[in-house]
Write a protein that binds this DNA or RNA. Structure first.
Lengths: 185, 185
DNA sequence: GTCTATAGCTCGATAGAC
DNA sequence: GTCTATCGAGCTATAGAC
């Protein structure tokens, strides 16, 4: 792996752990084992590097989600597979986390990939729910776009509860709750 | 209002907007209209001030929730009143926001009030759901603790989606989704 | 109680040698 | 492509006058 990739990966980790405001070029360089000149040779600055890092994390998140949602079974089965897949819950979501960063939401360029990623995730979940509705698994009146937003919100909010408690249990409870509600539909 | 209170209020605002890592003593002083000597006279430092600010925000959050949950009606009515109350959605949750801050979750003293607040909120919602279950509004088999976690997670995650989109709609969708699921129980 | 001055450090970025 | 040196600013905190 080249120095450029090392820098991107270090930035991804630090953005996940500490956010944009809490991540310094110096910390990125140290984690990547690269010097200052090297970083500013490959990237225009902190923002440029963050953009590359966020885009890579976003692509990975969507690919991982797709792997779970592509499984056979009913819509609720597929969503269960997605929600129950192994997660490092206490680390939170590498993309959702960025929405709490004032400099990310204030900058259209930095916010765009975050918005697009969560938007696509919701759209994909709505698609799965649509298929379930067409198959008669869900009521014809179900608002699949709203349910998709609820599911993604449970994930993102589950991370918040788990991190507050420093334990994964509240995340698991929140997921169990929404799955029991979906199963009862 | 005294200087001490001004400092606490400014810290509350800045923690909400920028988090702990993104908030400097200097910014607090400027917003409060107080000098450095004044701040360090009233508080031992940034952490001490943050503790006072978080405790005050936590008390306010729980009091506001209680005002909505105390209303008459079924459990779902009361939870609807809570979820649908007027919110500045794009600002997010002043307490949940702190779970994304590495220095808050790493410090037991700073994390404690966050954990306690979200824990109490979940417990209070579970209580409301328990009352509804006893009244026959919910199935006897409903896992009220899990549903309470789901409801708080939808709120916290709804903020995440709204901030990503820079629009309140995803929050409203997520709330609509979970309320429709609860109504169908 | 509040002020100014200052400490020692890190911030994000640039310069210029090699 | 990577290095070291340096910039001007801001960081959290302390000192000591008033």
């Amino acid at each position: 792996m080249g120095t450029r990739d090392q820098l991107i990966d270090s930035t991804r980790e630090l953005l996940w752990e500490r956010g944009y405001v809490g991540t310094s070029p110096k910390a990125i360089q140290q984690r990547a084992g690269a010097g200052q000149g090297s970083m500013y040779h490959h990237f225009a600055g902190k923002k440029d590097l963050a953009l590359a890092a966020v885009r890579r994390s976003a692509a990975e998140l969507l690919a991982t989600a797709e792997a779970q949602l592509r499984t056979p079974g009913t819509a609720v089965d597929r969503i269960t597979a997605y929600l129950r897949r192994e997660r490092e819950v206490l680390r939170g979501c590498p993309i959702g986390r960025l929405t709490q960063d004032p400099e990310i939401v204030a900058d259209p360029e930095l916010r765009a990939p975050v918005d697009e990623t969560l938007g696509r995730l919701r759209a994909r979940l709505a698609e799965v729910l649509d298929e379930g509705r067409s198959a008669g698994e869900l009521p014809a009146t179900a608002d699949t776009a709203a349910l998709a937003a609820t599911i993604v919100a449970v994930l993102q909010g589950g991370y918040v509860l788990a991190r507050a408690a420093a334990a994964p249990e509240p995340f698991d409870q929140a997921v169990s709750g929404v799955l029991s509600l979906l199963a009862a539909l």
